[in-house]
Amino acid sequence: MNASGKRLTLILLMAPLLIWLVALIVIPHMEILYVSLREKVGVREYEFGFANYMVFFNEPLYWNTFMRTAVMSILATALTLLIGFPVSYYIAKLTRGRSKTILFLLCLIPFWVSELVRTYGWMILLRESGLVSGFLQYIGLASEPIEFLYNDAAIMVGLVYTSMLFMVVPLVTTLDSLDDSMIEAAYDLGGGGVSVWREIVIPHAMPGIVSGCIIVFMLSLGNYLTPILLGGKDSLWFTGLIYSQFITRFNWELGAAFGMLLLVLSSTIVWAGLKLSGQTLTRTVGR
């Protein structure tokens, strides 16, 4: 094949990826950046400026929601890791063959139904007339119905539940690749449970931990359904603010500015996380 033929093949093969990247990622973001930098001075009259961003910095409610979303997402990520790690270790190291497949499937099954249905499942359990409240009354621990929904704990439960699979999958993969004899060697050389975990298991699983955390953090930060449904109208989730600017207030300019801020926030936190754990994006996500 001649040189131009090779070029054509390359372009044709790259085309779907390039179209997808440009049309669905680059162009919308450029558009949002452009919209966010427009100041409305009159009806259909705009001029360039940072007024939309200034609104965000001058209004404590926006600020607080922004920080609250970040902190809650980090917390949700940490909790998911804390629960997901033992589960993954059990699946990867302590089970064999059939039971391993079954346990893995059990983690996957909740994701066969839509997120909406799953979240309604939690609402059925946690609402005032729900199963948990009814059970507590039945065994006599509560004298009247208790509302478990519409608070931060409910949001946290929903976020952790929704994200679990995305933590377990990368962790199981990395832990699977840890040679059993490595753990045995560490015990043989005098290591105890704690030191084997600290020096062998966790350092080996680090790429999996970091990639799992990145995915879970992104999912939590950008989650809209779970915080709104489980947290109620006072959930104060940043995606909720973006939604209300775009849809309720028709203030696309401010909504676009919020969107850009969310992008900057998530990128900054992921970058900081990578720096803190001494990992790189190519080593973790690129595996």
């Binding site: 004899s181 490595m182 060697a185 043989d188 020096e199 062998i200 350092p203």
Partner: peptide, 13 residues
């Protein structure tokens, strides 16, 4: 006792 494993099991980290 100490053991030298079949694939040595040196810690790569």
């Amino acid at each position: 006792v100490s053991m030298v494993f079949q694939h040595l099991a040196l810690f790569p980290m």
